[in-house]
């Protein structure tokens, strides 16, 4: 009995310094290993039928594979097999359970870090202001045009559990109003049609398990809006077509596969703000 214990102690101690592997088990205990696999599958394994030495070898192998996975993210399919064997052996249950929990948590973390692609279809209401020069040979003024439009489009997004990056685009159509009543020339136009395109890059954080997002967008807005020159021919309008750049903050809040979103920016100029509110769904 004493000799058996010392032999086991030497084996166990030495195994701390050696990297146990499934190959070693297969090499030294091939017949038993195959039998164990079958018995685990059939749920017929009796732990008393196998030596403490073999059980310890399985445990060391499991520990080695777990450490490799936690360090290098390389998960061996045999790790799951080893876990089942050790659970069937009811050997070092607490330690096996702790290792299994670590593996599971790491698997979950890796899964959460993995980026996945998804698409969205969305409709947004947006509004922005722009300043347009109105000039005569001697006078130059700026007039404010307030626009609003509906923008229909979609996006491509890459997201994991923490971050989201994407690109979006939509076609917009709407109207604008302008009226200058203080400075010459007195000028008014209402319901000026416009159409255009808005594209944006976005980067955000995912801040809830439901997928609520908070981030920044870099939208480019190209619109065509034909304003008429004032009738007296003295004044001319400049720049009917323009590409506008509005860095914005955005939030997107999901309700299942549907979401609502808003964006506003850039907070730099009193008459140069874009905001939008919209809804859509992801697939």
């Amino acid at each position: 009995m004493a000799i058996k214990f010392i032999t086991l102690l030497i084996l166990v101690t030495s195994s701390f310094y050696a990297s146990a592997s499934l190959n070693e088990i297969k090499h030294r205990y091939n017949e038993e290993h195959q039998k164990i696999l079958n018995e685990v599958e059939e749920e017929e394994l009796d732990p008393e039928d196998y030596s403490l030495e073999l059980k310890e070898l399985y445990f060391q192998t499991y520990q080695t594979e777990a450490n490799l996975f936690l360090k290098n993210d390389q998960f061996e399919q045999s790790t799951t097999q080893l876990q089942s064997i050790l659970e069937a052996f009811e050997y070092k249950e607490d330690e096996v359970s702790k290792i299994s929990e670590k593996i599971e948590a790491h698997q979950k973390e890796l899964q959460q870090k993995k980026f996945q692609k998804n698409y969205s279809l969305e409709i947004n209401y947006l509004s922005w202001q722009r300043e347009i020069d109105i000039k005569s040979p001697t006078i130059k003024n700026k007039i404010i045009v307030t626009n609003q439009a509906t923008c229909l489009g979609g996006g491509l997004h890459f997201s994991n559990a923490y971050y989201v990056y994407g690109v979006e685009g939509c076609l917009l159509t709407g109207t604008g109003d302008t009226k200058e009543k203080k400075s010459p020339p007195k000028y008014k136009e209402s319901d000026i049609p416009l159409w255009g395109i808005k594209t944006s890059l976005n980067a955000g954080m995912i801040v809830s398990t439901a997928g609520a997002q908070l981030g920044v967008k870099l939208p480019l807005l190209y619109s065509i809006q034909n304003l008429k020159n004032p009738p007296d021919n003295t004044f001319k309008l400049k720049e009917d077509h323009k590409i506008l750049f509005f860095p914005t903050l955005y939030t997107r809040l999901p309700l299942g596969t549907f979401f609502i979103q808003s964006e506003i920016g850039p907070f730099l100029d009193q008459s140069n703000t874009l905001y939008s509110i919209g809804a859509g769904f992801t697939f």
Binding site: Q129, I143, I144, D177, T178, E180, Q270, S271
Partner: peptide, 12 residues
């Protein structure tokens, strides 16, 4: 932002 056919002004 005020939306009006008769008045256009800068946002407040």
């Amino acid at each position: 932002r005020n939306f009006s056919n008769d008045n256009t002004r800068k946002d407040s």
